[in-house]
């Protein structure tokens, strides 16, 4: 077994183990921390495939952004109430069926090979090695071909910030000024 496969199995075990811990913890803060661990594992998997840009985005966006948001939400809701309540809703069985179906589907593709998804006219998949220096490639494309959406996204974010401030600002401060 090459070092690459060892790394893969270690990271895969980390992701799966953390994911199971995430959905079985009663304390939501613990669940959130386990989710971070699972996401770090996924970032590691990206890195081992040479996709360092995706790995970086995974850490910055999911762990840096979304998980912090999760923790904020958890802090704002009364956690102790939740930990004593029944955890599985009536949708337990439909959810189980959906999960099993998804698992079988992914397993089916894994056994038959990804080639079964090919269809005429589909863009060529990227071969191994073609992802090297992908941060640089992403940067170049972002600032040449996709310069406009990149700049437009800054307006989008500005609107989001204004929206957050407008919605959360209290009226007192408004009348003071």
């Amino acid at each position: 077994m090459s070092l690459d496969s060892v790394l893969f199995y270690v990271l895969a075990a980390l992701v799966l183990g953390s994911a199971i811990m995430t959905i079985t913890r009663r304390n939501v803060v613990h669940a959130a921390v386990w989710l971070i661990s699972a996401l770090v594992g996924v970032a590691g998997l990206f890195l081992s495939r040479g996709a360092e840009f995706l790995a970086g985005v995974q850490v910055i966006v999911y762990i840096g952004g979304i998980m912090v948001l999760f923790l904020f939400v958890i802090m704002l809701v009364p956690v102790h109430d939740e930990s004593t309540q029944r955890r599985f809703s009536n949708q337990k069985w439909p959810a189980t069926v959906a999960a099993v179906a998804l698992f079988l589907w992914v397993a089916f593709i894994a056994v038959n090979g990804v080639g079964m998804l090919d269809h005429p006219g589909m863009a060529e998949p990227l071969g191994p090695g073609s992802l090297s220096e992908n941060s640089e490639a992403v940067g170049l494309v972002l600032f040449s071909q996709y310069l406009l959406p990149f700049e437009l996204a800054s307006i989008l974010l500005l609107v989001a910030i204004i929206g957050a401030i407008v919605m959360s600002k209290t009226r007192n401060r408004e009348t003071e000024s």
């Binding site: 959406p149 437009l152 989001a160 929206g163 919605m167």
Partner: peptide
């Protein structure tokens, strides 16, 4: 497509607020 999508979101987000 990317330009259109980001433009659409800029419009939509402004409207939500």
């Amino acid at each position: 497509l990317v330009v259109l999508f980001v433009a659409l979101e800029t419009m939509a987000l402004s409207f939500y607020v």
